[in-house]
Amino acid sequence: MNSIVGNSKSKSMVEKSAQVIFTVCAFFAVLAVVSITAYMILSGTPALSQVGIAELLFGTVWKPTAAEPSYGILYVILTSIVGTTMAIVLGVPIGVFTAIFLAETASKRLAAIVRPAIELLAGIPSVIYGLLGIMLLCPAMYKLEQVIFADSSTHQFTGGANLLSAVLVLAIMILPTVINISESALRSVPSSLKAASLAMGASEIQTIFKVILPAAKSGIVTAIVLGVGRAIGEAMAISLVSGSSVNAPFPFNSVRFLTTALVSEMGYASDLHRQVLFTIGLVLFAFIMFINLGLTRILKGGAKHE
């Protein structure tokens, strides 16, 4: 009955049912995306009309529990944008150069040390990054803060929990993503391109920057997209090192990100406060959608020109 050969009837049954199972699984992901989108919009929009879109998105005062509450999340939105951008600016060059090192210039022995280290980095839970940030980064940052603002009378000292600490933690956290995807993009560049470039007399470095990197561009852009996604969605690690007060995103200010705003206040929030938190979730959701669509477009445009 269960022989591999089987008859043609049972074979077509297996084929068909397998196809059905695959289709159902595929639509499960679609269903998840659609239901999450619907839920976020349904639970995030009531506060928009209740508080007023302009007041909510462009207000700078966050006092959700005051007698006359104020729900301005502009600083929170800006913090997420500035923080993520800074983390990308810091993390992507390091990540891409590491990928070049692994794919092109590293000796086997060195690569055997670096690669497992990166894999380990990817596996460390984000809360550990946060704890290390509190223990090591914040005290060092506080010393720096005390030196820089020694004569300032207006600066509010944060004890090292500030935007810069969060950015450093984020930059380290996106490294594994950026490195792994960039490396596989670099490796998938046909070796004939490299050989041709070297044969034309180009040096190793010229070949890497003029030939291999442009050829692997789309893969590296994907790496950046996923890095942005990881950075903007991270909550646990940065909630421990960012200070979590709502302030304008300057490097030494205590700041609150979209994610940490959700995490830190969801526990006790009620009524309109809670609804506004859902709106923050919706803003975060919109951001991730926007970034993905936007960068996909850049990627497609780039492909056309070639």
Partner: peptide, 28 residues
């Protein structure tokens, strides 16, 4: 490509949302 990136975005969001959900639940 767009579909793939949309799905990827969705998955990222799912990831971040479940993360939030868990912490708020345990901290409630």
């Amino acid at each position: 490509k767009r579909m793939i990136s949309l799905l990827a975005a969705g998955i990222l969001v799912v990831g971040s949302l479940t993360g939030c959900g868990n912490t708020t639940e345990t901290e409630s």
